[in-house]
Design a protein around this nucleic acid. Structure first.
Length: 277
DNA sequence: AAGAATGTTATGTA
DNA sequence: CTACATAACATTCT
């Protein structure tokens, strides 16, 4: 699988809910717009992933912008679609398979300028070849008092990191999520960046990342609550895999985190790092 | 069966 | 301008 900037050729079959009604415009967040519905029968040129965002470039400089949100996924089905849902159905031009976009995602038709505006608000993506850890490091240093756990899922700092990745990455590096970002050394950050990238690559392989997942025919691996759950080091676990002690559960940025109080000290272990700011 | 969950954003407050 | 909190969104799983 190529590194970052993955390009796929797609064809949009239709944009309707599965009951056949035109996709509705719902909340400001759930932007299934009528414009998107007008895409019927026309073709995408390419698709690109940036962080958690998908951009399907299209004729006339238009771009279909998709975000899978929290529960969203591309699901594959054979034959008749399941119960009526709001969905966007697309057909890949290379493997001839139909996918449905299900969940509370956004799907909107934008132009190239708006696409650039979306990307401009995002921090570097560790999975992309243009993802620069130094840019993220600067983003981090601009917010030294924030906790690293909070900063990691801020898409303006780094893009693509969600709650599970931050849990796993901070555990692997022995960093407490409540440690202030300013207490991380540059070396800490570089290690964190590559750990995140490694975890993301594994996620892609397991089928948790949308665009790349289309290349990886493992539909069963797609559900997070399927067998893959056992692969988590700390997320939703109770015992530390490193020291065997009990994990603690705490809320960071209003989301659950699992932390080993022994292996993830709140202050850096080495006294020399206390000078780093 | 009610509640929580992988995420973002609009809104308010400090 | 930053930061923190809250609710809302649609769906699935516990």
């Amino acid at each position: 699988m190529p590194e970052g900037n993955t390009i796929h050729r797609l064809a949009l079959v239709h944009t309707r809910d599965l009951a056949g009604r035109a996709v509705r415009a719902s909340s400001p967040q759930g932007r299934f717009s009528r414009e998107a519905a007008r895409l019927d029968g026309r073709r995408f040129l390419e698709a690109e992933a940036y962080g958690k965002h998908l951009f399907h470039r299209w004729h006339g400089g238009l771009v279909v912008h998709v975000h899978l949100g929290m529960a969203g996924s591309f699901s594959q089905f054979a034959g008749a679609p399941p119960a009526p849902r709001v969905s966007v159905r697309m057909r890949l031009s290379v493997p001839r398979v139909t996918f449905d976009l299900i969940g509370p995602p956004t799907c909107e038709l934008i132009d190239e300028e708006a696409r650039r505006a979306v990307v401009a608000r995002l921090g570097p993506d560790p999975l992309r070849s243009d993802g620069d850890p130094e840019v993220a490091w600067e983003n981090l240093r601009r917010r030294p008092k924030r906790t690293i756990g909070d900063a990691l899922i801020d898409q303006r700092v780094v893009s693509g990191v969600g709650n599970i990745y931050r849990n796993e990455a901070l555990f692997l590096l022995g960093i407490h999520p409540l440690r202030p970002a300013g207490r991380l050394s540059h070396a800490d950050w570089i290690a964190l960046w590559s750990t995140i990238r490694r975890l993301m690559r594994r996620g892609v392989r397991a089928g948790t990342r949308t665009v790349d997942r289309l290349e990886t025919p493992h539909p069963l691996a797609a559900s997070r609550r399927d067998p893959g759950d056992d692969d988590f080091y700390v997320y939703q676990q109770t015992v530390c895999r490193r020291c065997g002690g009990a994990l603690r559960e705490l809320s960071v940025s209003d989301r659950r985190m699992f932390v080993c109080p022994v292996c993830q000290p709140r202050s850096p272990r080495r006294p020399s790092e206390t000078a780093a700011s």
